[in-house]
Amino acid sequence: MLTLECPYCGVMADETELSPGYEAHLKRFGPGASPEEFEAYMFARKNPKGVHFERWRHSYGCGKWFLAARCTATLEVFGTYPAQVSEPPADIIAKIQARRPDWQPDWKATK
């Protein structure tokens, strides 16, 4: 069972205490956006086999949304962090690169 630490209340929460919210750091588009931008925001997904950033909600705890860095190929958790950021903080990146030396962030290139 997946266990994530809620960065707000510090609880090590089991998966049954959490609700998954899929890919994090999506760039949002609303009215006035082109169909391509809106499709990319609504549907196109990285769905990586490896390092992934996700939204989770501590729904049977403090109720808040937070973000997690996780490996989808091994289920290893690199860390969690509050949701009020547009990209993962430096300490999370460092933790990922300590475990996955070849991994490079891709959002500088895509955003």
Binding site: M1, E23, T72, L75
Partner: peptide, 13 residues
């Protein structure tokens, strides 16, 4: 299961 996963095993619950 409710999250991205390539491990061919799921959560016990």
């Amino acid at each position: 299961d409710g999250f991205n996963n390539y491990t061919q095993r799921g959560s016990f619950h």
